[in-house]
Amino acid sequence: MAPLFALVVGTALARLAGLAGISALDGWHPALRVGLAVMFVLTGVAHFAGRRRADLITMVPPRLPRPDLLVSLTGVLELVGAVALLIPATARVAAAGLALLMLAMFPANISAARRRLTLAGRPVTPLGQRTALQVVFVATAVVISFGP
């Protein structure tokens, strides 16, 4: 739920900043870019931070090689994508790339749910709820990619 919170709060604060007179954030499209960037900074950092990193490595489907390398690679892509979302010239391409990345990583969530993993002392998010969240995240990236 933390990624959803980051997306919603980041978007809302950016939109408020736009309404307060920061012209670069004047509108929902720039606010969504900031919200999605905040979300990806949060999730990207988790790919390198202690126990959360170990949990993400555990989520990688067992048939894939080098789960540690895959987690590092996806973490770097998330962080680079977050920065690129904040640059108007690269935001659309970054959003499209991040949407594809989320789709590519979703099988890890399916695998974790099917294997009934416990991460950080709690069961993984149930697959139905995780799928709904994924739809929201991917839809946000698509809106940014094809928006004004």
Rank of each mutant, 00 (worst) to 15 (best):
A94D: 07
E78F: 03
T11H: 09
I22C: 01
F106G: 03
A132T: 12
R92L: 02
A46C: 09
L119F: 07
G97Y: 10
V80S: 01
L70Q: 12
L133G: 12
M1E: 12
Q129W: 13
G10W: 02
A20D: 09
M59Y: 05
V60P: 05
V136N: 09
S145E: 08
M59A: 12
A132K: 07
L85D: 03
G44N: 02
P67V: 08
T90S: 15
P65M: 10
A104P: 04
D68R: 12
D68N: 11
G50Y: 09
I110K: 05
A112F: 07
P67H: 10
A139E: 00
A37S: 15
S111C: 03
A89Q: 13
R53F: 06
L117M: 13
G147K: 01
L133P: 00
L86G: 07
V83S: 01
L101C: 10
L127F: 11
R116P: 06
L85P: 04
N109W: 04
M1N: 08
N109L: 08
D26Q: 13
M1T: 13
R115G: 09
A46V: 05
L13D: 02
M102V: 01
V93Y: 08
P62Y: 12
V143I: 15
V124Y: 07
R130H: 12
L7F: 11
M102D: 00
A82K: 02
L4E: 09
F40S: 00
G147A: 14
F5S: 10
V136I: 15
V93M: 11
L32Q: 05
A37Q: 01
W28M: 08
L70F: 11
Q129K: 13
T118H: 14
L79F: 02
P107N: 10
A96V: 12
P107A: 07
F5L: 15
Q134F: 04
H29K: 00
M39Y: 02
L56P: 00
P123A: 14
S72I: 03
F146R: 11
L42E: 13
R130C: 09
A120Y: 03
A31L: 06
A82D: 03
A91Y: 07
S72D: 12
A17Q: 04
Q129M: 13
L56M: 14
L103K: 03
V83R: 05
A37R: 01
I87A: 11
V38R: 00
S72P: 00
D55M: 08
A84Y: 00
S72F: 11
L73N: 00
A89G: 07
